[in-house]
Design a protein around this nucleic acid. Structure first.
Lengths: 350, 350
DNA sequence: ATGAAAGCGCTAACAA
DNA sequence: TTGTTAGCGCTTTCAT
């Protein structure tokens, strides 16, 4: 032994120093002094000494023993997307206050990576899951459910699975957005979405389509193939805009599609909203700042986070009997934030 | 017992099913079959059965026994900042490939929260730390060092502590930026920074100041108080711009300061770069997209991530003797990405 | 080449 | 009221 490493304090050290048994120490530390009728005097001495030496129980050992880690696994699509970052942050904050820790990871919407992450979280024995499910992971989520690990999905759901979830009424959002554009006099409204079949994307498309049909207009839908090569995405959108005539307005189905769309529109030198009106599903700091400011269908991030964590903690504390019908399925409304990008020339928001 | 929960497979189940001892199973699973001279036949049978039933060792028990968790704690200032998000993502990717998991948390630059997070990571027995230190946590980091837990700081360092670190030469970055503005003929160049005393912020200020002094110009420095209320920040910058005359160029010391600055400039209806040239320390997707595109002092994110993880894994695998001089202290260069916001009218980048 | 057994640090049932 | 002790699931030494 080259250098003597300072040994960490153990529960044993506490007990022997104080001349009490380790059970006493453990009980006091876990707030069970009263119910085990340990004298206040002893309890005080234990607490004081623990504080003094800064003793921290080994969570690994504790978790192994109790089967509880007080850790929640949060699996989102992309933690660098402001929407997920904000929701994750709010969830973390509230969970922390109630004694739970969050560990999060991004799936990049890749089913294989999602599977790997779920598996890793299971190995680490998370007490519960919060998942933004990518396509094709019904089996894995089903397995979690079967083990009765409390789980809440958000942003989108898996129709085949009876789970708790918190989602947003995207159809209502795009329906309102299209309605707003129609009211402004736009008639050739396109919708740019991804090639994903996920529920939230299909809902957004549905709201748009319904609005157009009600006005006897033909939907103009572009499904972009999602890829890491952003240049390809931009080029794809650019080509769509160029070849779609007439087209005087576009609703983008996600905030990043809007960003690529703005780049495409810049390349084409079209003016917003003079040549082309723009609305983004999901807001972004950039949209407030952009000139002109971009109209957005905002999602209620605080409410999403609050519902998700409330449901999960409820399940964690009072596990529901595994019945066919999950107890909590929440659908929240969006809010249309009208800014300059969707207004006829000369008009002002509000 | 209302419902029988399907028991998870244990190493015991594997051993007894295969009629071998648990030691054999463990050895095979940990790749020590050869060195323990276990027959290939047995090893194969074990592997096959483990695969078949999908057995996963309990990491909690494993870690408790070995003292290794194969988890690295990553403590950054704000995971929703694209700079940290990108570096974190790159670090995670490389760590994952080498069998390590990352758990990350944001400090919001709050020393109390930082302490809490470090403490939580220690309780969870992370094998190593990657830390973006907020001010006033020398004591905590010192304690980690004393326990010989491998640690790397990045983005900024703690001058009082002999640690491994990976930082960027911010002074060189702002010096070059100021030089570029001077070359473009700007003479009244301001510098907007925060009230933080952290090394990276001081370095950035130093580079700017040196450039101006070399040209016998007076530095115009604004230190903004960082706050959650973004309106206050914007108003603060706006007031500074309004009351600083003459002023024909500004270097912002962080990307978010630039974003607030742009909002302030919009309010004031100043044109970029006709009325005011702009350069941002640290790039951002938005800056490429903005009209006009914003010149930025870009940090080498890939290189930062690679250096950080290489150093940490090196220490994890071959712990250096705790000597006074830490082995790895890396300073990386920045790159000035010249875009339209810093060019005299009519000129084009490149 | 394989098995028995001693812990890692903690909790909680049971004894005293 | 407090102490003793049997595990939680795994790794690894040592004996066979």
């Amino acid at each position: 032994m080259a250098s003597k490493v300072k040994k960490r304090t153990l529960i044993n050290d506490i007990a022997s120093h104080l001349q009490v048994s380790i059970a006493t120490v453990s009980l006091v530390l876990n707030g069970k002094a009263k119910q085990s009728r340990i004298s206040d005097a002893v309890a005080q001495r234990v607490l004081a000494y623990v504080e003094e030496v800064g003793y921290k129980p080994n969570q690994l050992a504790k978790s192994l023993r109790t089967g509880k880690t007080h850790v929640i696994g949060l699996v989102v699509e992309d933690i660098s997307n402001p929407f997920f970052a904000t929701v994750a942050w709010l969830i973390e904050k509230q969970a922390f206050e109630r004694g739970y820790r969050i560990i999060y990871c991004s799936t990049d919407n890749d089913p294989a990576k999602t599977r790997e992450l779920i598996s890793m979280f299971q190995e680490r024995h998370v007490d519960g899951f919060i998942i933004v499910p990518s396509e094709g992971i019904e089996k894995e989520v089903g397995a979690i459910l079967r083990e009765h690990t409390p789980t809440v999905l958000f942003d989108r759901l898996l129709p085949a699975l009876p789970t708790n979830y918190v989602v947003v009424d995207g159809a209502q959002g795009t329906y309102a957005a299209a309605g707003h554009l129609l009211e402004q006099g736009y008639r050739h409204i396109a919708f740019v979405t991804t090639d994903s079949q996920q529920t939230q994307m299909e809902e957004r498309l549905r709201g748009y389509t319904r609005a157009l049909h009600e006005h006897n207009l033909t939907p103009l839908v572009k499904r972009v193939t999602v890829t890491k090569e952003t240049e390809k995405l931009v080029a794809d959108i650019q080509e769509f805009i160029q070849h779609t005539t007439p087209c005087d307005a576009i609703i983008f189905a996600t905030n990043y599609l809007t960003i690529y769309g703005l780049e495409a529109i810049n390349h084409l030198q079209r003016r917003i909203p003079a040549d082309l009106a723009i609305i983004s599903y999901d807001d972004h700091d950039l949209f407030r700042l952009y000139s002109p400011a971009i109209t957005a269908i905002a999602q209620p991030v605080e409410s999403i986070a609050k519902n998700v964590i409330d449901i999960l903690l409820q399940e964690l504390q009072h596990p529901t009997e595994p019945v066919a019908e999950p107890a909590y399925q929440v659908v929240l409304p969006t809010e249309l934030l009208i800014r300059c990008s969707s207004l006829r020339q000369g008009r002002q928001p509000e």
